[in-house]
C-alpha cells in the first residue's frame, strides 16, 4: 500500500533519479569526511572480529556505511545475528 502511494506521488524509489541522488549522497559523505572505502573495509573486518567473540553473526549480510543527516555524519552498522555464543 505504502509502495503504491509513494509511486502515485512520484516518489518511486526505483527511479533512476532517486538512485542517482542516493549514490551521490553516499559518495559525498565519504568525500566530505575523507574516509576511504579501504578504511571502511578495515573497520568492518575489525568489527566482525570483536563482535564474533560474543555473537554468531552473518558476515555476508553485514553492512557498514556512513550516513548523513543535515550536517552530521553517523556510522551505521546493520549486523544480522544468527545466535549468541556461550
Amino acid at each position: 500500500m505504502l509502495e503504491f502511494l509513494s509511486k502515485l506521488f512520484g516518489r518511486d524509489s526505483g527511479s533512476s533519479k532517486t538512485v542517482a541522488k542516493e549514490r551521490l549522497r553516499l559518495v559525498l559523505v565519504h568525500d566530505r569526511s575523507s574516509i576511504s572505502p579501504q578504511l571502511l573495509e578495515t573497520l568492518k573486518a575489525e568489527m566482525i572480529q570483536v563482535i564474533s567473540n560474543y555473537m554468531d553473526i552473518d558476515e555476508q549480510g553485514l553492512e557498514v556505511s556512513l550516513d548523513s543527516s543535515g550536517n552530521s555524519v553517523a556510522l551505521v552498522a546493520n549486523i544480522p545475528v544468527r545466535g549468541m555464543k556461550r
Binding site: D12, S16, K17, T18, K21, L24
Partner: peptide, 16 residues
C-alpha cells in the same frame, strides 16, 4: 526527464 524521475532536478542538487 526530471518530471519522469530520470534526472536529478534543481531542488535535488541544491539540497545536496
Amino acid at each position: 526527464m526530471v518530471r519522469q524521475g530520470d534526472m536529478m532536478g534543481i531542488d535535488d542538487i541544491i539540497d545536496i
